[in-house]
Design a protein around this nucleic acid. Structure first.
Length: 433
RNA sequence: GCCCAGGUAGUAUAGAUCGGUUAGUAUCUCCGGCUGUCACCCGGAGGGUCGCGGGUUCAAGUCCCGCCCUGGGCGCCA
């Protein structure tokens, strides 16, 4: 069934560098078939790029030639042949086929056009996501995503952080605020985790420096380009660091991500026709109070108010790159953020333009203060007993943040819809595939 | 949850202001031709309950009502 196994398989991209006459095996999906009588050109694509296979009736014979003529687009083929110079505009070298086998025959019509000649709506594309990924532009996003994840891990390893995995099925609807997805856990009620917040704080009392990359869940019917119900979060928490220390960590992570993508994904960036955001260290840092003053030039806003979408868009016009907004009012931050004075907190957000990428701060590390803050926010300390107890075991001062990986990808790949950066996104209307 | 814009072959679109012949185009799929194509070309064919239901009318893709779906904005959002 298969062509001769003794010959090496080359990726499409490699063929251009092979010497004339090299015998090679090419595998991939058929992008185009151009029959010209006794000569057929097949463009085949794999994850690395495009290759051209030439089928000559006088060389392969009647039977194989017919296989080539009757191919369907998107089918998976395997060809064996010799490399020769090509007159193609797209590739310098091509493969003159001696054998051709169909490994999987596709069945048109397809719900979308993965070559991108006719644009399909995102909705249709997501319905056929597996096929959509054959589009080099779509594939490029996820190759970059791979680099981003790799870069993040390398930075944290270098900084002496330990990678951890906290539970995603949780028993207590902690934290209040956002809505949790409920599920049944045998006879008990359980929830899908919205964050590793309490776990990662607890881990600082032993592992000191931890980070986690994982998916979390929010049952919110958000209808925007930057919210989904299942998102990937990068979380870190470190003992003995304050809010400015962990802001520096965030800056280093983001800076390295940009530099690594620049180094490793120039081809993908070109396919996407985007330029990476400029990064200069240190990132700009403005306090919440300064942000309010800035906004006052444009509209009536009271100190203490949370910033709305329109405010962030306004700020984004002034601060077009990465920047921090730090020391937010205590009242609009969660209970575990430490107090700075009677009205401010040791908190910060990392922004890119109008987009909120990360949020963090120094944490409360006394049990008494934590209980007080819970009550202030109308939460019941009894529900947090398992967490509060850990503060009696000796809890180091610690700080941390959570960063939306999908949002960071939006910035890096220049997409304006978060769904483009997630393989199989989940939003209030989409649960499949 | 609120507001706005949409829904026409597999895909993407034109046609709606003014109701009237066989709903047009590109791509796609199939058949025929071609030895250097490259979004090949040339010739032929196929594919549409115009989102669903109801109404007005001699006549509805087009006008009216309801519903469903999609996109976008706001809100919600550690």
């Amino acid at each position: 069934m298969s062509v001769d196994r003794q010959f090496k398989r080359y990726y499409a991209k490699e063929i251009s560098n092979l010497a004339e006459g090299t015998v090679c095996v090419v595998r991939g999906w058929v992008e185009d078939i151009r029959p010209l009588g006794k000569l057929t050109f097949i463009t085949v694509r794999d994850r690395t790029g495009l290759a051209q296979i030439v089928l000559n009736k006088n060389i392969v014979g009647e039977e194989t030639f017919k296989v080539g003529e009757n191919l369907t687009r998107q089918s998976i083929i395997e060809a064996l042949g010799k490399v020769q110079k090509s007159k193609s505009q797209n590739v310098p070298m091509e493969v003159l086929a001696e054998k051709l086998v169909i490994l999987s025959r596709s069945k048109p019509p397809f719900p979308i056009d993965p070559t991108g000649r006719v644009f399909s709506s995102l909705d249709k594309r997501l319905d056929a996501r597996a096929l959509d990924l054959r589009n080099p532009q779509v594939m490029a996003i996820f190759k970059i995503r791979h680099t981003v994840l790799k870069s993040i891990r390398e930075t944290f390893y270098r900084l002496g952080f330990i990678e951890v995995n906290t539970p995603k099925i949780i028993g207590q609807a902690a934290e209040g605020g956002a809505n949790l997805f409920k599920l049944s856990y045998f006879e008990k009620k359980a929830y899908l985790a919205q964050s590793p917040q309490l776990y990662k704080e607890q881990l600082t009392m032993s592992l000191e420096r931890v980070f986690e990359i994982s998916q979390y869940f929010r049952a919110e019917k958000s209808h925007t380009l930057r919210h989904v119900c299942e998102f990937t979060s990068l979380d870190m928490e470190a003992a003995y660091m304050d809010e400015f220390d962990v802001m520096n960590v965030a800056e280093e992570v983001v800076y390295n991500v940009i530099k690594d993508v620049e180094k490793e994904n120039s081809e993908e960036l070109e396919i996407l026709k985007v330029r990476l955001p400029r990064v200069e260290r240190p990132f700009k840092r403005i306090s919440y109070t300064e942000a309010i003053e800035k906004l006052r030039e444009k509209r009536m806003i009271e100190w203490g108010e949370d910033l709305q979408t329109k405010d962030l868009r306004l700020l984004g016009r002034t601060f077009k790159e990465f920047y921090f907004i730090y020391h937010w009012p205590l009242a609009i931050k969660p209970f575990y953020i430490e107090r700075l004075d009677d009205r401010l907190s040791k908190s910060f957000d990392l922004m890119y333009g109008y987009l909120e990428l990360a949020s963090g701060g120094k944490r409360v590390n006394s049990r008494e203060e934590l209980e007080k803050r819970l009550i202030e926010q109308e939460l019941d300390p009894k529900d947090f007993e398992y967490h509060l107890k850990t503060f009696d075991y000796g809890m180091p001062p610690h700080s941390g943040w959570g960063l939306g990986v999908d949002r960071l990808l939006m910035v890096v790949t220049g997409r304006n819809n978060i769904r483009e950066t997630i393989l199989y996104p989940r939003d209030p209307k989409r649960l499949v595939p």
